[in-house]
């Protein structure tokens, strides 16, 4: 049982002290899981990461589930998941309870009037770098632009986009590329 609580504790600490979402957590997870606890070696960690970020769901949770399962089976992954979820769950719960009482407050409202456009700017800012990392070229640039416009302006369902992207990816790799190469 001590092993399970250790899994919980390691991920609880990571969940509690990393601000700014999944990617900020990765160096901490690597430090704890690979360097300190040696639950995975370096190569396993890199391979795992590639998969954890391509699957749906938050990367931090995917990583936690993988590490827990690899080390101690399904029960192990229950403990790591709980560890990574609990800190943000408690924090947000306290915030929402407090925030519900103060949202009508004039000071709070004026502070958030300043914050809202900043939030939008923070979403746009990393796009260029991310596009380069995702290997977007002049030939494929139309894909993100089209997706952005039809989801952003026409409110087309993102689920439809994901299903289409999967189908077109498979169609291209399995059929069209072979026809071109022939």
């Amino acid at each position: 049982m001590k092993r399970y609580w250790e899994l919980f504790y390691v991920f609880f600490k990571i969940g509690a002290f990393t601000f700014g979402g999944g990617y900020a957590m990765l160096p901490l997870i690597q430090n704890a899981v690979v360097d300190k606890k040696k639950w995975l070696d370096d190569k396993e960690f890199i391979d795992m990461l590639a998969i954890a970020q391509s699957m749906p769901g938050p990367i931090a949770l995917n990583t936690a589930i993988f590490v827990g399962n690899k080390h101690k089976g399904v029960k192990g992954s229950l403990f790591t998941s709980l560890g990574i979820i609990l800190p943000s769950f408690v924090t947000i719960l306290l915030l929402v309870i407090v925030f519900t009482q103060f949202r009508e407050n004039a000071v709070v409202e004026s502070v958030f009037k300043g914050i809202r456009p900043a939030v939008v700017a923070l979403i746009f800012a990393p796009l260029l770098r991310m596009g380069k990392n995702a290997d977007i070229t002049w030939q494929t640039l139309w894909i993100p632009i089209t997706v952005a416009l039809i989801v952003g302006l026409l409110h087309v369902s993102p689920i439809l986009i994901i299903v289409l992207a999967i189908s077109l990816g498979i169609l291209y790799r399995m059929v069209i590329k072979k026809v071109i190469n022939r």
Partner: peptide
């Protein structure tokens, strides 16, 4: 190879979805 082909299709769409997240909040 099916998983790889699916991920190949998702990658550029995800960038578009992030841009859409910004547009939806304007």
């Amino acid at each position: 190879r099916y998983v790889r082909a699916a991920l190949f299709g998702i990658k550029p769409a995800v960038i578009g979805l992030i841009a859409a997240a910004g547009i939806l909040l304007i």
